Amino acid sequence: MLFAILCNDKTDHLQLRMDTRPTHVEFLNGLGDKLKFAGPFLDGNNKPNGSLVVIEAESQADAEKIAASDPYAVAGLFESVTIRPWNWVFNNPSAA
């Protein structure tokens, strides 16, 4: 099952995001086929201020474990994290 992980950064934490980014990227790359896509949300100045990560996981609990292991989460970057089951209907490359 797919899960969308929606993360909002804490205010004024851009430097923490930038400092942690290399380990975050390494973590995402390490997810292999579990990672479907990911990228930052942007503020009005085109600076990252959150994340959208879509993963495949066996359950909500497994998705929560993966999200909690993200170096951004471990570093305390996020103000909030929402994890929701998601159905990729349109432009899903695996459905082609």
Rank of each mutant, 00 (worst) to 15 (best):
T23D: 14
A63E: 04
K36S: 10
K65G: 00
D19G: 00
L28V: 09
V25M: 13
I55T: 06
L42F: 13
R17D: 08
W88V: 06
H24P: 09
I83R: 00
T11C: 02
I66Q: 03
R84H: 13
L77C: 02
K47L: 15
I66Y: 03
V25S: 03
V74D: 04
D33C: 02
A73Y: 13
D9V: 03
P48Y: 03
A73H: 15
N92E: 05
T20D: 05
G44Y: 06
N8K: 15
N87K: 11
A73S: 15
K65R: 11
V81F: 03
L2Q: 07
N45R: 14
L14E: 02
A67H: 01
N92W: 04
F41V: 03
G32K: 05
F37W: 10
K34R: 14
L35S: 11
N49M: 05
F41Q: 12
R21P: 08
H24Y: 10
F27Q: 08
D33H: 04
Q15T: 15
V25L: 15
T11H: 13
E58G: 11
Q15W: 02
V25Q: 12
G30P: 08
P22S: 12
G32V: 09
D70K: 01
A57I: 06
T82I: 10
S51A: 14
A95V: 11
D62P: 01
E64M: 08
G39W: 05
T82D: 13
N29W: 03
K65E: 07
S59D: 07
S59E: 08
N46G: 11
D33P: 01
A75Y: 01
A73N: 15
A96W: 07
A75H: 05
I55R: 04
A75C: 08
S69V: 07
W88Q: 05
T82N: 11
Q60W: 07
G39S: 08
F78A: 01
S94L: 09
S69H: 04
F27A: 10
V54F: 02
A63K: 01
T82E: 12
L2Y: 09
N49D: 14
N46F: 10
G44W: 03
I83A: 01
A96K: 11
L77T: 03
M1Y: 04
M18I: 11
L35T: 07
I5M: 12
F3S: 01
A38P: 02
V81R: 10
F3R: 01
L2W: 03
